[in-house]
Design a protein around this nucleic acid. Structure first.
Lengths: 348, 348
DNA sequence: TTTTAGCACTCTGATGTGTTGAGTGCTAAT
DNA sequence: ATTAGCACTCAACACATCAGAGTGCTAAAA
């Protein structure tokens, strides 16, 4: 496990082993390597090199006298040093972009579509979270009488996030009253965050106004605490075809990552911190529980503004190059859509 | 396959076979039956009866000389004639109800919670669709200036459904203008469905007003066409523990039902037509593709008003009695919450 | 010094063969 | 109508055998 640079040839072998293993899903031996790809060297030489690579921790044998399989370290080396970054083919770009532009869609439909596209083109499972503002600022409140004494509070945040809540009062209230109150509160709170709203509301005495304040502050607080962000998933079905998910355990890991709120939040948190496309291979030591899944993640949205995360999950043996290009393309596309929608003038 | 009433004893045997098979997950033989439950009769007699039940199509043997397993028909007979309907234990009812009432939640959080509760107490996968109005009627529109020439349209429907859409105009617009226009349109369209809105809007000439009309009509039309209803899922992980999902095929079926939009819509459509709790066993001849999954479904919401569907999916070998009580309880709970929220005065 | 041919060795996976035991269907006695 | 008894069947398991893919090592070749 010493820290040594790999020779040109060793790198080449690593590249071919990973490539071949991704294709064939079976451990790759020295012979298949020389016949499949024309390296100007004999199997014996390859064997020696492979033994060395195994010593260094990049390859492993499932059992004595089987071919070699990349280790997590091996994959990591591959994606960092060996993989060429390719653009998503133009044709696919156009097809995808077309789907997004052909209809006037709402944000949640874009997100759903993103998940579908990611799943479909990567042939794996996908995960997309709804974007959220880094800090949330008040934009507008609307009060709508639903019944005699029920009022629908509609809260609009900078960035266009919408929240609703229904309130019930003991006494009936008039729509005209509500309209005036809503205008007043909107003026009073405009552009503030929830702390500032609390501060600015000291002079309020009206019961309805106070209740609305509570709801608004409560809601904004929850949003800032990064609860309740919707998650869109798709393509779980795709992953079932991979041989590593024949046994129960593999699937179990994958589904846990997709389903368990806590894990998703951790992952997304990770993605939101770093920019660019991130590749997580087999838990990376941090997450024991998913040693068999590979994740390609990216942040999207406007820097320091509304951001979300999207990614693809699959077996370790994943065509990373291709997957990365899809995820990168989709995150850029989505970022553009979002900044077109919301503009760049999100208050920082 | 003749149509014959089962004798008392045959019914009893059916009941015990199903019960035992659900518990043990292995084919049940004549001997286990007499030792486990004290029937006052010998294994040989049971064997004869079982042979008869097999002839009638209620039981089957996985192979000669294994115990018996219920067929789809057998399960169906069980749930229709033999299963006693039990209430969810009071304690559980209280625990669940408590979760729903302890916090002031929004609709989408209730739905998510529903899915979680269903999954958890049934130890299977769950599916909940957002409720939708049978017919959708306009309630309120709000226009909020986001940037110089971008406007957020917030559409509120009777029943409290919220939709948003961002519009961009060539020329800047003032918030004051927008407020007046929104009030005017709200008055003009109040209580109408999308066709009536089109009819009522003949006199409009203002460009912004026309664009808003298009968006509103378009959105309402889409909603009525029953697109875009959100789906909440949970508990897929639970089902993986069942032995019938050890092999890939079982899981595949289950995930297809959960993931494929089309199938979900069909199922939900089914659930919305009939009232009460519905049990679908192995596709019921209609759906070839999921011969191995059992589904317990119920409608919730206000009759002829806002309704959705919720249910539990699992292996055929499911504790139907228990599952039915959970689903029934949850659908009632949710119905109550919804009618509390929206009141009964939904226009028909 | 590096590469390679050759070879013995190892281990999986497929195939085949008993053996066991749970469970059956049938027959004859109760 | 029920049941004891019995022969029979078949999946599941253990075990042995065998082919083949792939290895590591050694000694020769480059």
């Amino acid at each position: 496990m010493e820290k040594v640079e790999l020779t040109e040839r060793q790198q080449n072998i690593m590249r071919l082993v990973v490539r071949e293993y991704i294709k064939s899903a079976t451990p790759v031996g020295s012979k298949t390597l020389v016949t499949e790809y024309n390296i100007g060297v004999s199997p014996a030489t390859i064997r020696n090199e492979m033994a060395r690579l195994e010593e260094l921790g990049y390859l492993m044998q499932p059992h004595t006298s089987a071919g070699r399989v990349p280790t997590e370290l091996g994959y990591r080396y591959f994606v960092e040093k060996l993989m060429e970054q390719v653009e998503l083919p133009n044709e696919e770009q156009r097809m995808i972009s077309h789907q997004f532009h052909q209809a006037r869609l709402e944000l949640d439909q874009w997100l759903r579509l993103s998940a579908a596209v990611l799943a479909h083109t990567s042939r794996n499972a996908s995960l997309v979270t709804a974007p959220k503002s880094a800090l949330c600022h008040f934009k507008h409140v609307e009060l709508i009488s639903i019944r005699d004494n029920s009022v629908l509070v509609v809260l609009v945040l900078e960035g266009g996030t919408l929240k609703q809540q229904i309130l019930t009062f003991d006494t009936p209230v008039q729509q005209s009253e509500l309209g005036a109150l809503a205008r007043q509160l909107t003026d009073l709170w405009s552009g503030l965050d929830y702390k500032a709203i609390l501060a600015a509301s000291a002079s309020l005495t009206d019961e309805i106004a106070l209740t609305v304040r509570d709801v608004v502050v409560d809601t904004m607080q929850r949003i800032e605490a990064r609860r309740s962000s919707d998650i869109y998933r798709d393509g779980l079905l795709n992953t079932l075809n991979h041989p590593e998910f024949k046994n129960r355990e593999g699937i179990q890991q994958l589904i846990r990552v997709l389903e368990e709120r806590q894990l998703v939040d951790q992952l997304v948190g990770e993605a939101l911190q770093h920019g660019g496309v991130q590749i997580i291979i087999g838990g990376e030591g941090k997450w024991e529980e998913f040693s068999d899944v590979g994740i390609v993640l990216a942040r999207y949205g406007v820097e320091d503004g509304v951001t979300g995360a999207m990614g693809v999950l699959g077996p370790l043996r994943m065509p990373y190059s291709r997957t990365v290009s899809v995820v990168r393309y989709m995150s850029h596309l989505m970022s553009n859509l979002i900044s077109d929608l919301y503009g760049y003038d999100i208050p920082r």
